[in-house]
Design a protein around this nucleic acid. Sequence first.
DNA 1: CTTTTTTAATAACGATAGCGGATTAAATGC
DNA 2: GCATTTAATCCGCTATCGTTATTAAAAAAG
Lengths: 414, 414
Amino acid sequence: MKTADPELMRAINRFHVLDTIRRYGPLARVEICERTELSATTVSAITASLLDDGLIESQNLGDVRNGARGRPRVMLALRAQAAFVVGVKVSRYRIHLAVTDFQGDVLADLGLPVRLSREPLNVLAYLIEDGVRSCVSKAGLTIGQITSLCVALPGVVEYGTGRVRASPLIDELDAQLSDAMVERLGVPTYVENDANAVAQAEYWFGDAREFEDFALVSLENAIGLAVMHEGQLFRGALGLSPNLGDLVMSGPNGAGPTRLSELAEQDAIISGSADADCLRESARNGKGAAKVAERIARGDGGLLSSANEAGAALGVAIANIVTMLAPPRILLVGSTLALGNEVLEKLHATFESAISPAMRGVAEITVHMPGDDVWARGAAALALRELYGAPWSTTGPARHSIRNGIQGETDGKH
Amino acid sequence: MKTADPELMRAINRFHVLDTIRRYGPLARVEICERTELSATTVSAITASLLDDGLIESQNLGDVRNGARGRPRVMLALRAQAAFVVGVKVSRYRIHLAVTDFQGDVLADLGLPVRLSREPLNVLAYLIEDGVRSCVSKAGLTIGQITSLCVALPGVVEYGTGRVRASPLIDELDAQLSDAMVERLGVPTYVENDANAVAQAEYWFGDAREFEDFALVSLENAIGLAVMHEGQLFRGALGLSPNLGDLVMSGPNGAGPTRLSELAEQDAIISGSADADCLRESARNGKGAAKVAERIARGDGGLLSSANEAGAALGVAIANIVTMLAPPRILLVGSTLALGNEVLEKLHATFESAISPAMRGVAEITVHMPGDDVWARGAAALALRELYGAPWSTTGPARHSIRNGIQGETDGKH
DNA sequence: CTTTTTTAATAACGATAGCGGATTAAATGC
DNA sequence: GCATTTAATCCGCTATCGTTATTAAAAAAG
């Protein structure tokens, strides 16, 4: 446990103020007082220090309140240029990158069509390096200006060490992606599960802004799970994030266990159709929903049954998540949801029949379909989160040591 | 989020000191300094305040070090009489109670043979009240001296509100057990899932003393799950604790889903035998292992197959827990483990074949068989934990308001 | 155009926390 | 009996926060 001293106290309140400014846009000091319940003096001192460090700046251009009687408020906002980070989302058919500033605003993004399946680590690292360089340059920056980088990809990832224990996109086991990227780009790199990245995006920018506690299930060519608990991502030993696709749906009998991924991955659904290749192509272009609906209407029984099977498996899996974690909310995201309503309808129906009566009504299930850019932005947000430097331990032990530098104009004294 | 001020600082360090004394037995101030990394001055001040409040006391009877050179150490220990609490474990065939002092030492315990199955709330509340009164009197105390009470039982429990949403032992849904006990005994009452109680016992007194992160699966007539995360029990919405028995093991087809409880509950295993009633009786007396082994050796095929089925189901369930939460350790506890090795062997084998290769070796599985008294003590420990008053939020929102009074001799000034 | 009013932000002051170094306390060793 | 050693406390310092007064900068009133 950490012992409390004045320094920690300051760190907590400082983070609290910074986070409040991030969440609630430009704020006057008085407003920060109200939201944080700190005294005006303390807020004054802390904001002075933040200004001094170049993390925030005052927007002199006016008090927007109309009918303003007293001294006008000076609005404070994050100083966008305080740092720049890159978020990368790697998926099977696409690498999406986003360069953001300190506020998480996207300066440039880039989607690279690829076709990845169990590539050697070096291939992946090369593609990411290439993408980062392009995107950074597109944003009008140089690599030297990038403070840190976060790569999100499906699979079992150790956030703490930067290793990818297993991923459908990487050939090897235990690939040290973090070190590979540091070597190539010279930029501190975090590696995270893609579900965690999109959960962070939803929490900072999206639908889950008001929710400190929720679970998120990501449905793409891999199936992921993120658990946000009191505003922090839940991580296991070594910072491990779960890979929901590995969930065993029916006991190992003979040929081994049937996993959720085999039933509900996007490819598994599409493979049910006789015309799988064509559908795969459409799905990649975001026209999956229409195509799938059309096929089913035309009587593609294989597709219909695989969609139903996927929906049922997901319904059970989500019921089990609710049984085990009782999150007040479940978010479903990912491109598989664009395949049409069959999956989702079956999912809901199965969930309702599978959930125990005692847990009925505990978790509200909502669906959201963020674009790939949001995922990349989420990865960037994870990198930023580290920069904001919350003083309490990020969930999960054994962190990889990453320098926590922020480039400010006066990054001097203290 | 809580804002940090000197008061919080003190509360944190105070709890830290108190918890250190609780964990590591009588300690001299110097030793507290080493363990907490607080300065000698601070420890002196905090211990003075704790002494003043009657929460700890100095053991003047000597410095046990031999070859002691300088001024002898004054050992500090929890003052046992600072508070008394009662822990209750309710299970199908037994209500076990323990009265403990402020250190968690058991002053008296009591096991009442019962036979509960879906009783009305009042029956249960009556039995608990009766047991509490007996046990308290056996400890030489009066109800008025009891600071608080914690009832642990299987099922879906809202720790935050004191409601039992569902339990195999209670007839109704959403039974307000906490209020019922307060009304009967006039003692603040916490209600908790039994798995959480035994997890707290293992964390404070037992095998999990060194582990801040682990998951525990309790195997009795109900199957429970507790997740300890950074020394805190993980709780969901409203403080909900999971009921692992509700886990769906195979999709809802026709007659509804097959749940883990149907496959792996103690009764389910025993019911496989032709001679179930006799076995049930033996299991109740702790002679299950021998009897079951004997029956299987004699060729009770039904029993063997139900044991294997249970082991397999549990192996899959535990693999799924590891997949979702990646705990560094899994503890198995509960009387079902006394039914012989068939279940456990099958469990391990199935786990190994069900766990995804990427997660292999993440979680170490260990088995422990605490007696009913340990569970009751764990419930008491949960009540004590609240008294120790950690300043940071107990996991999970929406607490039931319970007065946090401690009876000290000088419970005055501050 | 000056004065009053109103609100925002800061300054001055006091309280409390923790820490480091000097001091006292209480034992052993010579 | 006195030096030595170790434990615990006392004193002085700094950093934090909060409360109360003060200054700053605008609109409204006269």
